[in-house]
Design a protein around this nucleic acid. Structure first.
Length: 819
RNA sequence: GCCGCGGUGGCGGAACUGGUAGACGCGCUGGACUUAAAAUCCAGUUGUAGCGAUGCAGUGCGGGUUCGAUUCCCGCCCGCGGCACCA
């Protein structure tokens, strides 16, 4: 009987005690670095999604080891963060304690899945030996002007009592707790991620930026697209409008200079500095002031609500001048223009922009058509009044530019702007610098000291790490709890020695996870972030696996860090992860997202106890394509248990000579499973393994003996081993092997054996299948036509018809075209 | 609105560069074993007409290219994900 509990426990103990997964040091072998996104060690333990992605990489790691690669496959813990801190606030138990316990649980659970991690290579972001280097990296950024403090409108979550990065605000709400995010004017630390959007040259080296780097990596197109969207590059022009009778100017940004002859007014964001500067010239100030007050109390969410009516107010007494035709136009203030993007001002072209049209209709502003479709037919005014013509076309009513296409006009008009010094070509980005400071306790302290004399002073490298104090009150107050730790605050200025105070804020946990992948290779090193030789040998990561929810945030930040590290010579590569794959979300059995409240959560521990780790691994890989979202099925895993029991039975009851058909199928299966693993097509790999067993089963004798030689059975077990490590290791031992199956090589298939001698030749008439004939694989067209003509069914279909032609695909089909 | 991905039996899904649609698994139906059930084994299982051989229809919808289309092209519909008053 197949007793999975006994077998799995036995081998897990032996593997760990025997150091089976210890990273090899033989540098002669080609390396292969396979990495999982490390988990946040929550108190809830592993969930089905963890099992899915960790199993996927485990199979990959075992396969590449069998293929002769020096595989590096570590795992660690992203342990700083809010849940542990919030738990501490509730219970008074230190995050240090809860984190330690959670990591123990996670490690135990991962081992119970038979995952082949080398636990000597691990990281824990809340360990001072780790965050010392997080702080070191902060200083690297600081020294190179990439970390700076700035007062700005920032995102504030009142529930988490901290500021957030733009990436952590989803639809105006906190990514963590769902609370609505408000804007606050605060002084905060930023990383200059915007410096790395485009390619740059540094000390004679070409460094790829965040945009172009995407072209060189094998990542899902959706993830690349998400990053490009987030960066939001727009190519256009900056144009200067003079304000009549003053020395002031308005700069606007547009991607459609070609429409500028249709500009009938200019709009400023309420926060625009001109409003205050020109207060004296504005004749309706009380009205303007009322509008300013009204917009000030609105949240960002309210202001960017697409469904609301556009509002605005004219700046009476002011007139702007269109630099192309000297037309004098009105200036409006409206909160549909964002202060944070471009110049905070736009030229309004109602005929060719929906937003401007809506505003123009409401305030009865002129609408002037300057672009017509390529057929030169002027769209009628009624139509324009309904909906703006936003497509490109041919320019009309545009002075010397009339008749040009939109694309040509943009070029010519930009030249005109440059020559007349009224503007320039301009590229704008949506991406803002990364706000990294947090007013929370459970994170890496920012290594900065403030001195009355010397100002902002970085902590000297030799004083790192700046330890997170333990004498704190966790309760959030809107200021970092570190402020109230006396041990933390007692510090002398590193420059002048006078009494000073520390920076109270900690770093965003995404900073900790932006570099962990390189620490694994030398995780004990206290002298350097990692030994350059080790970095050179193992990096970059060959395959990275994790959830698609990190498409922007983690995956963008980690690329940014890598580019910084490359620029300053810490690493020699530009992109951290050559190949990236996402595991799909596993839904509850009811098709909904798993959640405690819905009661549809599946528990890996229970499944391992009931069906075994091998069954759980195999089933999650069999459910469907790895990257797809798919519902759990408690029946489905039973099908896998049946399959594994069959194999156990096969391992105990086999004998005899091989059937040639079975041997051929075995070699085909070896080929298919290998190729499928390489492409992460685990579902079809498992299907192929099942087909082999099913076919072998058909030749089974009456007394239940499987007709296969030990030699060939071993080959089958070897290709199954990556999926079901425990069962295959057990059978391997039963077959008389002393050494682990995971020290064996992947079996080679014989190309001669997988060639079919006969094939089912499809005979179709006018493309419709009418018969299949079993024929020699190398049958000629002439022979095939002859055989088809003799076939009764085919005869019937050809009766009274004239054969126009025959299409013959060797070894596949013959299509007879008749009239 | 823009960008990315997808739509195939009762269900999860398979189908290489256009060439037997529905592999594999679940479920279901019938049978064997059993006092009975579970487990296991055998047969069947896209719909439809037919006792049957077999025919017809069929991969979201409408067109097209082709000897032949789930696969390629055009136009739609629907779902998921990203961005979004970003000018």
């Amino acid at each position: 009987m197949y007793n999975h509990q006994e077998i799995e426990k036995k081998w897990q103990d032996r593997w760990l005690d025997g150091g089976l997964y210890k990273t090899e040091t033989d540098r002669a072998k080609p390396k292969y670095y396979i990495l999982d996104m490390f988990p946040y060690p929550s108190g809830a333990g592993l969930h089905a999604g963890h099992v899915e992605s960790y199993t996927a990489t485990d199979i990959y790691a075992r396969y590449y080891r069998a293929r002769g690669f020096n595989v590096f496959h570590p795992q660690g813990f992203d342990s700083f963060g809010l849940p542990a801190e919030n738990y501490a606030i509730k219970t008074g138990i230190s995050p240090v304690e809860t984190t330690k316990k959670a990591i123990e649980t996670f490690t135990k659970q991962m081992n119970s899945l038979g995952l082949s991690y080398d636990w000597e290579k691990t990281v824990n972001t809340s360990d001072p030996a780790y965050y010392k280097w997080t702080q070191w990296l902060f200083l690297l950024m600081y020294k190179n002007g990439l970390a700076y403090k700035k007062k700005a409108q920032v995102n504030w979550c009142a529930s988490c009592q901290t500021v957030l990065a733009n990436e952590q605000v989803v639809d105006g709400h906190c990514e963590r707790c769902g609370n609505e995010v408000i804007q606050k004017d605060l002084e905060q630390w930023f990383f200059k991620i915007t410096d790395f959007i485009e390619d740059q040259t540094y000390e004679g080296r070409q460094l790829k930026g965040l945009l172009n780097g995407l072209d060189e990596i094998d990542w899902p197109s959706s993830t690349k697209a998400a990053q490009r969207n987030w960066i939001g590059r727009s190519v256009g022009a900056e144009i200067t409008f003079k304000i009549k009778g003053t020395t002031e100017i308005i700069k606007v940004f547009t991607t459609r200079v070609d429409t500028i002859f249709g500009c009938t007014y200019v709009v400023l964001a309420p926060e625009h500095s001109l409003v205050v500067n020109l207060k004296d010239k504005i004749t309706n100030w009380s009205e303007v002031d009322r509008y300013l007050e009204m917009t000030e109390v609105k949240t960002n969410l309210q202001r960017t609500d697409l469904n609301k009516d556009k509002t605005g107010v004219v700046l009476a007494g002011l007139t702007a001048v269109n630099p192309f035709n000297q037309e004098e136009i009105k200036i409006y203030l409206a909160d549909y223009v964002l202060a944070s993007y471009g110049t905070g001002a736009v030229m309004a072209v109602p005929a060719h922009d929906e937003r401007d049209l809506e505003f123009a209709k409401k305030y009865r502003l002129p609408i002037k058509i300057v672009i017509v479709p390529n057929d030169q037919k002027t769209p009628d005014r009624e139509l324009i009044f309904d909906s703006a013509y936003t497509a490109e076309g041919i320019l009309i009513n545009s002075g010397q530019f009339t008749g040009l296409t939109s694309a040509a006009a943009r070029e010519e008009m930009t030249k005109f702007l440059i020559n007349s010094q009224q503007g320039q070509a301009q590229i704008n980005y949506r991406l803002r610098d990364w706000l990294v400071s947090r007013q929370r306790y459970w994170g890496a302290p920012i290594p900065i000291i403030y001195c009355e004399q010397c100002g902002e002073v970085p902590v000297p490298e030799e004083s790192l790490p700046v330890l997170l104090p333990t004498d704190v009150d966790f309760r959030p107050t809107g200021e970092s709890p570190l402020k109230y730790s006396s041990s933390f605050q007692q510090v002398k200025c590193p420059k002048c020695g006078a009494a000073a105070r520390r920076e109270n804020d900690t770093m965003d946990t995404f900073v900790c996870s932006s570099w962990y992948y390189l620490r694994y290779v030398d995780c004990q090193n206290s002298q350097a972030i990692a030994d350059p030789d080790l970095l050179k040998y193992w990096l970059p990561v060959d395959v990275y696996m994790g959830g698609a929810e990190h498409a922007v945030m983690h995956l963008l930040y980690v690329r940014f860090f890598t580019k910084v590290l490359q620029k300053y010579g810490v690493v020699s590569f530009n992109e951290p992860f050559l190949k990236l794959r996402h595991q799909g979300i596993i839904l509850g059995e009811d098709g909904n997202k798993m959640s405690k409240s819905k009661g549809n959560v599946v528990n890996p521990d229970e499944l391992i106890a009931g069906h075994g780790a091998d069954a759980l691994r195999l089933y999650e890989m069999f459910m469907g394509p790895l990257e797809d979202m798919k519902p759990w099925s408690s029946r489905g895993i039973i099908g896998i248990s049946r399959f594994l029991e069959k194999i156990y039975n096969l391992g105990e009851n086999f004998s005899g000579a091989d059937d040639q058909k079975i041997v051929a199928l075995l070699h085909k299966t070896i080929k298919k499973v290998g190729e499928d693993i390489e492409n992460f097509h685990y579902n079809t790999a498992i299907s192929a393994l099942m087909i082999f067993v099913n076919n072998l089963g058909e030749y089974k004798t009456k007394n239940n003996v499987w007709p296969v030689s030990q030699n060939n059975l071993e080959k089958f077990i070897l290709i199954l081993a990556s999926f079901a490590p425990h069962l295959t290791e057990e059978l391997w031992e039963k077959l008389g092997h002393q050494e682990s199956i995971f020290k064996s090589s992947w079996p080679e298939y014989d190309p001669q054996l997988i060639k079919d001698e006969t094939v089912n030749l499809v005979i179709s008439v006018n493309g419709k299948l009418r018969a299949t004939l079993e024929v020699a694989a190398d049958i000629s067209e002439v022979e095939a036509i002859k055989l088809a003509a003799e076939n009764e069914t085919i005869k019937k279909w050809l009766e009274g018809k004239e054969i126009v032609k025959n299409i013959f695909v060797a070894g596949k089909l013959l299509n007879i075209v008749v009239k």
